[in-house]
């Protein structure tokens, strides 16, 4: 049986099903691993309550551990502390930007992120700040839809929560 640390490292490599350029660890979904004699519990936090990727992440976790003869795996969802965009690392934010998704701009404790839209959202394509929100709700629960008024490209923005 592998140690908790080894299992955690294996799982750290799992890409997010929706945004494959970052891992479930980068996103702060993967929390911790507990190993007892012949079973293994993996704790994950959903980004949004209804995130449909959770089932797939659970399957990916089981799949990643299967070659290591770990089969007695249970994946548990934890809601507290609630997931926040603050858990996304700086490197992961940069990866998001390169992928074409504007990363969350504020800290979730910043009132501005709750009450209004970010003042200056940079277009991930051309860096222009001349952008506009099209829809607060985007292609997935965690994103809003924006457009750049300079390069005319629409883009996703990772909402602050």
């Amino acid at each position: 049986m592998l140690t908790e640390k080894e299992i955690y490292d294996i799982l750290s490599e799992i890409p997010d099903p929706e945004i494959p350029v970052i891992t479930i660890k980068d996103l702060g979904i993967l929390q911790r691993v507990e190993v007892s004699e012949n079973s293994c519990i993996v704790f994950i936090t959903p980004t949004y309550s209804g995130c449909p990727a959770m089932k797939m992440i659970e399957d990916q976790i089981k799949e990643a551990l299967a070659p290591h003869q770990i089969t007695n795996i249970s994946v548990k969802l934890i809601y507290s502390p609630a997931w926040t965009t603050d858990w996304i690392s700086t490197e992961a934010k940069e990866k998001l930007r390169t992928y074409g998704i504007a990363p969350p701009q504020h800290s979730s404790v910043d009132k501005g992120s709750i009450l209004g839209k970010p003042k200056e959202l940079k277009c991930p394509q051309c860096n222009s700040k001349n952008t506009q929100m099209i829809s607060q709700f985007g292609s997935t629960a965690c994103k809003s839809l924006y457009k750049c008024l300079d390069c005319k490209e629409p883009f996703d923005y990772f909402k602050c929560i």
């Binding site: 949004y48 309550s49 969802l77 709700f137």
Partner: peptide, 16 residues
């Protein structure tokens, strides 16, 4: 998108 996104939040919450 908005209404179905919210539906997803609500159904997710009901699961929990």
């Amino acid at each position: 998108l908005a209404l179905t996104n919210m539906a997803l939040d609500l159904i997710g919450r009901s699961v929990a």
